[in-house]
Design a protein around this nucleic acid. Structure first.
Length: 1088
RNA sequence: AGUCUCGUAGCUCAGUUGGUUAGAGCGCUACACUGAUAAUGUAGAGGUCGGCAGUUCAAAUCUGCCCGAGACUACCA
């Protein structure tokens, strides 16, 4: 039986399936968690995905990141539990249900009951759960899907209520009347998170109007009037003409300079005087198609305009609505929000439809007009515009923009100075794509501003990857924090557990089912009704519950739901149903050591976790956070179903395997940079890493099986007794382990991956294995061979561990192959312990020596190439100028490697190089630059111009004097580097200060040996092509072309040993056995 | 509009505290090597380090402005 399985080829997708079977059969994931101690935890929080859409390739990216750091810490011995979760509430689900049922928000509660509607939502939300579970398995993401937290479950909701009650108790929950972004099409207010969804702000072309507000004569307005009948008007620009009927004030900047322009109204051709900011006059006057400035008054400050009265612009006889008691209207105010960057320096103020407007109106006792209803239509008291949608909210076939009709009316009445189209950014509802209105709404808020400073402070203790996302992006967001608008006027979500009396005087926040039960009992008794705690805490059941106030009045629930982001931000507590159950479990798992999501979650989940944790527990919720960038297509375009450039994660994994996909995604670029996803890159990862490792393993397995060599071989020499090259690769390996650990501890997986690739390709495969091949296949199981096996085995086994976080399948496959024959083998690499670097194996001098060997070999090969001397042709000697003793000692240690690599007989050192080697002097800019400053250039010229004698003298004395600006400067050894450049009369190559020469003279012996090697090569090729086993013995007949007789007589034994030939003779060979020989000739070789 | 990140070879990316011939891999061309080979070696082509100015003896690296990309923030009417 073979100790190490051998394979016909590498098939990564097949390996995935095999390994997955093993994991499931032996419950490897569960064991990998359970075998680690309870008191050494590394806590991970899973950001819950929503299963109402298909998983995309970007999910593979973010989940690969989560998975790999969890696996890495598991390997390090931590207990890393990963409780899965599902995000189940929210507007996207409601909207998709509305769409399927062909209903709108208005129909809910009318044509369909809330109960049926919510039942439908609950059904829809897990629609793609099977696909999600499937991709989770196939990509190798280890997460506990058997006991996930689900945000719609009563237990989860109860925990959320607990948190809300805490906030309520701390006075951090309040009801306010504010101007909120509102989507008439979706029928709901939008949170700032939603407004910040990608693509919410769109470039739109709107009709803009500079409206003219007629100033009423009064004592303090007198300075504006040159005569009694002068028509003085204040110009205000707006991009939302539909708000003009609701205008109740104008705002000016107190310190801005204004002027009055006499001109002619361009639409009515009547004389008019226009007031606007001085700096903006040129924007509206004087150019082509603009009215001319007939005269300009001297400038006056905005504060002089304060308190002036004007006539309503469009008066439909509506009474002014009170705002905090204020009912004043049609008055000029001043405010700092007014600027002169565009418009006229006067802001049209409609307090119902703008946050700034409302603020300044409130402060000045000005009332408001709300002439638009919640469906986005004018109310029926707006004259000719009554009942019309202010924007095209219903996709009406013949929608006529009301803005244009308002503009026309203003033009004809002489109330417009300018009407034009204007392109600007305006927020849109992220689901309906319709423009948002700013609308006065009753809302519940979380007073996050009250804990702003603490949140900033705590944020500084969080380790963000990359750092700037935390410091800048998240930090700036916290600096400008607004209160969190918590209310959602929807149906499918966590109900706000607040009951109020009708007048709002008394309110009660319920924090648990137990508390609700008591409150219901009280109410039942006081009000003489019969009601029970509903079995489902959702609407509509909870809506029916009536509680009782302290003075015996009924209290009804506030009908709002809460923002779904509060749901997911509650997961550290609610996933355990804390504090009602699992208080101990919660304590052990809070806060998290690690979370990871896309950078788009900065203001989403990252924020809500942080906010709730700060407010309720005065702690961070997570200590380390990795935020990854977007996954774009290979041209850097955003992936979208519409463009058809979205990569299908199922197909990708099916074709290339999960490991190559994961490895590519993480090694190609830092995860926080955007990834330009290109399948070619996966192919490259497969070739560079997985194929190479596979080949290296296959090589090992082939010979280890032949020799029946077992891992743990007690007779293998100690590392310190192994050959130089074994100690070298082990030194490299342990350096790699050490660097790997520090990179991974710093969450820098990309650097880790790249280091591993370099080790596998450059050091292990292309140097160690290549140079050591014959040690593995030649002769009996000697000590040297044992050393080679043990060394290569350790490299492969360690690599299987190092790559296992990123490539969980292939690594396990290789690990199983390597350890399957061991008596106490582990069921998986994921149950093993990550090795510690052994410092005694790390030898810097050895690394340096090997670098010399590689460099010298490379130089010799380039000379051979230039001289057209095949490597099989042995050459006599290498000449190597030695500039210091250390160099010679180093090279001497690796001499045999060099000689066999380049097929040369000997190295000769030239120690007294004077007169033989021509040299060059190089200035050391680093040391000299600081000392010489601006004389550096002159000095550099002098040093580079040093002749051979000057260099020789410098080498002897160690100092070189130059004269700069009449001053003598003495340079020493550290200032000038001497390198060898050429050896006149020899074939040389030189690089980085090392020069080598090659003796290319030949004699008969060398030529014969070269031919013998050629012959070995041809015979080996024939063996392989004729399908002989590596152990089969043969006899050979060779056609005696020129030189062959001599080669066989001189090197017959060598040829026979190399090719496992019992007999070797010359003789005639039939034509079908002819093969290519040197320089276009042919030779006949026959094997028997 | 503001803030942040970024711009290096055809492509994907490295490039330490500024130091003088700017690197790697892929791809391309040619020639080799190969009893692990969808691998490898050697050589070649390919760069005004986004642009302009400045600081400095010295700038891919530091500063300013501009151009371009992306993300975030924003109802400045």
């Amino acid at each position: 039986m073979k100790l190490y399985p051998e394979y016909k080829g590498l098939n990564l997708p097949e390996i995935d399936k095999e390994v997955m079977k093993n994991w499931e059969a032996h419950q490897v994931f569960e064991k990998s968690v359970d075998q680690r101690p309870d008191d050494k935890r590394w806590v991970f929080y899973e950001g819950p995905p929503s299963a109402n859409g298909m998983p995309g390739i970007h999910h593979v990216m973010s989940r690969a990141i989560k998975d790999l750091f969890c696996r890495y810490h598991t390997l390090k011995g931590y207990r890393v539990e990963r409780k899965g979760g599902w995000d189940t509430h929210g507007l996207p689900i409601e909207l998709s249900v509305e769409k399927e049922l062909g209903i709108t928000k208005d129909d809910i509660g009318k044509t369909i009951s809330i109960e049926d509607y919510n039942a439908r939502c609950k059904e829809t939300v897990m629609r793609f759960k099977a696909e999600w579970d499937d991709i989770t398995r196939k990509m190798g993401y280890w997460v506990d899907l058997h006991n996930p937290y689900i945000t719609y479950e009563n237990e989860y909701i109860e925990s959320v209520w607990f948190l809300l009650e805490k906030l309520h108790d701390k006075g951090l929950l309040y009801k306010g009347y504010t101007i909120q972004p509102y989507s008439p099409a979706a029928g709901t207010g939008l949170s700032s998170h939603e407004l910040n969804m990608p693509g919410a702000y769109k470039e739109v072309k709107d009709t803009t109007v500079v409206a003219l507000f007629k100033v009423t004569r009064s004592e303090n307005a007198a300075f504006l009037f040159d005569s009694d009948d002068e028509d003085v008007r204040i110009a205000a620009w707006t991009t939302t003409p539909w708000t003009l009927p609701s205008n109740t004030a104008l705002s000016a900047g107190p310190e801005i300079n204004y002027v009055k322009i006499k001109t002619t109204n361009p639409y009515t051709q009547t004389p008019v005087s226009v007031v606007m900011a001085k700096d903006l006059v040129s924007s509206w006057f004087g150019a082509k198609n603009q009215p001319a400035v007939e005269s300009e008054s001297s400038a006056f400050k905005g504060k002089e305009l304060k308190g002036l009265r004007y006539e309503p612009l469009l008066d439909f006889g509506n009474p002014i609505e009170s705002l905090l008691g204020g009912t004043d209207a049609y008055v000029v105010l001043t405010g700092d929000h007014v600027t002169t960057s565009d418009g006229t320096g006067i802001v049209h103020t409609a307090p119902s439809f703008g946050a700034d407007d409302q603020r300044v109106a409130k402060a000045n006792g000005v009332g408001t007009l709300t002439l638009v209803d919640q469906s986005g239509k004018f109310k029926d008291n707006v004259g000719p515009f009554s009942g019309r949608f202010v924007k095209d909210y219903k996709d009406e076939a013949e929608y006529a923009p009301v803005d244009i009709d308002i503009a026309i009316l203003l033009k004809t009445e002489g109330k417009a100075l300018n009407v034009q189209k204007y392109e600007h950014n305006y927020p849109h509802c992220w689901r309906t794509d319709k423009p948002v209105l700013y609308y006065p709404m009753d809302s519940w808020f979380v007073k996050t501003t009250a804990v702003k400073e603490r949140m900033i402070e705590l944020n500084k203790t969080i380790n963000w990857k990359p750092a700037h996302t935390g410091e800048k992006r998240f930090g700036n967001w916290l600096e400008n924090l607004q209160d969190w608008n918590l209310s959602r006027s929807r149906f499918w979500g966590v109900p706000l557990p607040i009951w109020r009396t009708e007048d709002g005087e008394e309110e009660r926040c319920i924090g648990s089912i137990h508390e609700l039960t008591q409150a219901i009992d009280e109410a039942n008794e006081a009000l003489g009704i019969k009601q029970y705690v509903p079995g489902d805490l959702h609407r509509p059941f909870i809506d029916d519950i009536v509680l009782v106030s302290s003075d015996g009045r009924p209290m009804k629930r506030e009908t709002d739901l809460i923002d779904v982001w509060f749901d997911s931000g509650s997961m550290p507590y609610a996933q355990w149903h804390y504090p009602f159950e699992n208080a101990d479990v919660f304590k052990k798992n809070y806060p998290a050591d690690f979370i990871a999501e896309g950078v788009d979650q900065t203001r989403g989940w990252f924020f809500t976790l942080h906010a709730i944790s700060t407010m309720v527990f005065d702690s961070v919720a997570y200590k380390n956070v990795v935020s990854n960038g977007l996954v774009l297509d290979k041209n850097g375009q955003k992936m979208s179903k519409r463009l058809g450039n979205a990569a299908d994660p199922f197909k990708t994994i099916e074709k290339y395997g999960a490991d190559a996909t994961r490895w590519y995604m993480l090694s190609n670029a830092q995860p926080w940079d955007n990834l330009k996803f290109d399948e070619e890159g996966i192919v490259e990862s497969t070739r560079k890493l997985f194929s190479t490792l596979y080949n290296t393993y296959s090589f090992f397995a082939l010979y280890a099986n032949l020799d029946a060599w077992r891992a743990g071989d007690a007779q293998a020499p100690k590392v310190s007794d192994r050959p130089e090259i074994d100690r070298w690769i082990l030194s490299r390996l342990h350096t790699l382990i050490s660097e790997y650990r520090s990179d991974m501890d710093d969450f820098d997986v990309t650097t880790s991956c790249r280091r591993i690739e370099q080790f596998v390709n450059d050091h292990l495969s292309n140097w160690y294995v290549r140079l050591n091949r014959r040690r593995f296949w030649k002769g009996e199981l000697s000590d040297d061979k044992r050393a080679a096996y043990a060394t290569l085995y350790e490299c492969l086994l360690t690599l299987s561990q190092l790559i296992s976080p990123v490539a969980p399948f292939f690594s396990d496959w290789m690990f199983q192959n390597l350890t399957g024959a061991e008596d106490h083998h582990k069921e998986s690499v994921h149950l093993s312990d990550l090795p510690q670097p052994n410092d005694s194996f790390i030898d810097k001098a050895l690394t340096r020596r090997m670098d010399y060997a590689q460099q010298i070999s490379s130089l010799i090969l380039s000379i051979r190439k230039k001289e057209k001397l095949r490597v099989r042709l042995p050459l006599r000697r290498i000449l190597l100028p030695v500039l210091n003793d250390q160099f010679q000692t180093d090279v001497e240690n690796v001499k045999n490697l060099i000689l066999s690599e380049v097929n040369v007989k000997d190295i000769e050192y030239i120690t007294d190089t004077t007169g033989i080697v021509s040299k060059k002097a190089k200035p050391n800019f680093k040391t000299l630059g600081k000392r010489l400053g601006k004389h550096m250039k002159t000095a550099a010229g002098l040093i580079q111009g040093m002749g051979q004698e000057a260099i020789a003298a410098f080498e002897k004395s160690g100092s070189f004097a130059i004269e700069i600006d009449g001053e003598n400067v003495s340079l020493d050894r550290e200032d000038i580097e001497v390198i060898s450049e050429d050896i006149p009369g020899w074939q040389v190559a030189s690089e980085d200060g090392i020069t080598v020469a090659l003796d290319i003279s030949l004699d008969d012996a060398l030529i014969s040996e070269g031919l013998a090697r050629e012959l070995v090569n041809r015979i080996q090729n024939l063996r392989k092509s004729s399908g002989l086993e590596v152990t089969d013995r043969i006899s050979v007949t060779v056609e005696p072309v020129e030189g062959i007789e001599k080669a066989i007589s001189g090197f017959g034994d060598y040829i026979k040993t190399e090719t496992l030939a019992d007999a070797l003779k010359t003789g005639s060979v039939s034509p079908e056995h002819k093969i290519d020989w040197l320089e276009g000739e042919e030779i006949g070789i026959q094997l028997n």
